[in-house]
Amino acid sequence: MDLSGTPAVELRNVSKTFTSAKLGETLLALDNVSFSIQRGQFFVILGPSGSGKTTILNLVAGFEPPTHGQVLAMGKPIRGPSWQRAVVFQEHALFPWLTVADNIAFGLRMKEIPKRTRRDKVAEYIDVVGLSGFADKYPKELSGGMKQRVGIARALAVDSDIVIMDEPLGALDAQTRAEMQGELLRILQHEKRKTVLFVTHSIEEALKLGDEILVMSARPGRVKQVFHLSQARPRSILTDPEILQMNVELHRLLHRDT
């Protein structure tokens, strides 16, 4: 069966409610959300806090099940976390007891890939993310930007269909963040047609990186609008008239919300 037509990720009428055990209240985090991510797409979810961005991410990663509806990856329902949907966390979530090289090798070790192949792969990705010379350092010895390079390399090295990125640049200072946006594009060029689900609350970041931008509204989280971008990257978000227009539109959408 040829699956190339199936979307990489698909949400069908997904709702998610949380029940606070203490207060006995229920909170509707996602309300009837449907969308699909095509293979090889850089798909950005943009929304204010409380819009259910992270909830969508947790559903796709398989950390939580939906209350209603279906979440599919490669056409199959998601039944829990899998290396096929590797996650890059905002807080890096590196294993402090492993060196840079061992952190990158972690997923490969879980897949029980032979040591030799593992070593080559790790060397390759250390090079790709620009951490040559840091292979034997521990996470505590790295800066925030470097830690996130490890986090990205670790998620890419397992060679998953989909990479999920949860505000991966959110914890960085403004300058490092701008630098890492460019780096991310460069790194992803190394990967052929990898599907990326990228969560952010930065309009600028969404416009710089996304093929498609899904705007969420807050409380409850609903799909508000979807934007398509076909401009080649790296993009200049200050000169392209179409992007400038979109920028105005996105600001209007997001700020009316809050």
Binding site: P81, S82, A86, V87, A93, R109, K111, V158
Partner: peptide, 20 residues
Amino acid sequence: ILRRSALSLGADRRKLFYHV
């Protein structure tokens, strides 16, 4: 988050225990 990170990199219950 370390548990989640390991699970999303393909760890099963046993590996999660030993490696994380």
